[in-house]
């Protein structure tokens, strides 16, 4: 039977200033741990266990997301009104440049609803990705002090963006009605489209969180990548109109058509805007939207989980 170290003093290094050595030989510690069913500290849980733990932290995830959202504008005089003002001002800037100065409005029917929908839906994805890059690096103190499945952070930040989107949608409805788009049954199609987009965003957010946790420089690079992606996604113009009669090589056309940002933006435009008809959507658009959501959602989660034990260390 191993001796209990707590009952006797044990000195393992002896120097001139050390007290007289009185060591007890360390018992077979690994066997002791095994006998009492102790587990190795800091090991990565299995995938089912990880999912269970993440689910049990759902209250923390929602509270963290809401707290971040409220803390965001708490120092501003207008306070939570900025939740509505920020997306509206964004849309106003794009309207000024693309609608008025560049004259895109002449080629796109219902340009203002088209533009505002595009900007809001794009912002949802772009902000989720940017939030993802800061999910670990921006909360490193939390990661180094408390135990919880780290995926809670990117998921909470993606949820915060979803809450932000709901505010934007409120503004969007006002604009749509103001420009003559009255609510119809097809508006309900926006719900599945946005849910799929939210899953897609969360997956990307988790993947970015892992990449940026290892290489913080990525967050400096992301704004440029995102801007390129935005201009390729027809947020403020119609890709069909810009391309005109030009024939693109088949792969390039496919990439443009099945770009996930284009798919989610156009699905929501299709839901909200009467003049945006089904023939402007690529074939199998719902299948593509679902495929992107499943691929990025599950892939991003798996990719994030694979490095679970390494976040915030070293």
């Amino acid at each position: 039977m191993p001796t209990r170290p707590g009952k006797r003093a044990r000195v393992t290094t002896a120097t001139s200033t050390a007290p007289p050595p009185s060591p007890a030989p360390p018992p077979d510690l690994a066997a002791l741990a095994a006998r009492h069913g102790l587990t190795v500290s800091g090991a990565r849980p299995t995938l089912p266990a990880y999912l269970r733990r993440l689910w049990s932290r759902r209250d923390f995830i929602t509270a963290f997301a809401t707290a971040k959202l409220t803390a965001q504008y708490s120092q501003a005089r207008l306070g939570q009104l900025w939740q509505l003002m920020t997306p509206l001002l964004n849309a106003a800037v794009y309207f000024l440049i693309f609608g008025v100065l560049l004259g895109t409005a002449d080629h796109v029917p219902d340009f203002v609803p088209f533009l505002v929908t595009g900007v809001f839906i794009w912002t949802f994805t772009a902000n989720s990705i940017m939030a993802g890059t800061r999910a670990i690096s921006g909360n490193i103190g939390l990661v180094r002090a408390l135990h919880f499945p780290r995926a809670a952070l990117p998921v909470a930040l993606a949820l915060q963006q979803l809450q932000q989107l709901l505010f934007s949608l409120g503004a969007l409805v006002v604009i749509l009605v103001g420009f003559g788009q009255l609510p119809t049954a097809s508006w309900l199609l926006a719900v599945p489209a946005l849910l799929l987009q939210a899953v897609f965003n969360t997956g990307l957010s988790m993947a970015m969180a892992r990449i940026a946790a290892r290489t913080p420089d990525v967050s400096q690079l992301m704004p440029f990548l995102l801007r390129t992606w935005m201009y390729a996604s027809g947020v403020m113009w119609s890709i069909d109109t810009v391309l005109g009669d030009r024939e693109l090589p088949q792969p390039a056309a496919l990439v443009l058509q099945y770009n996930p940002a284009v798919i989610y933006i156009d699905l929501v435009r299709f839901a909200f805007i009467d003049s945006f008809t089904a023939d402007r959507l690529p074939p199998h658009v719902w299948a593509a939207a679902l495929a992107w959501a499943v691929l990025c959602g599950a892939g991003g989660f798996l990719y994030f989980w694979k490095a679970e034990e390494r976040y915030g260390r070293g």
Binding site: G37, L38, T39, S41, G42, A43, G312, R313
Partner: peptide, 20 residues
């Protein structure tokens, strides 16, 4: 390291439950 927040380079730390 006992809290599981730092990895060990060698050796192992066994715990009952999750130290906090």
């Amino acid at each position: 390291a006992v809290a599981g927040l730092l990895p060990t380079a060698r050796g192992k730390i066994y715990t009952r439950g999750q130290p906090s």
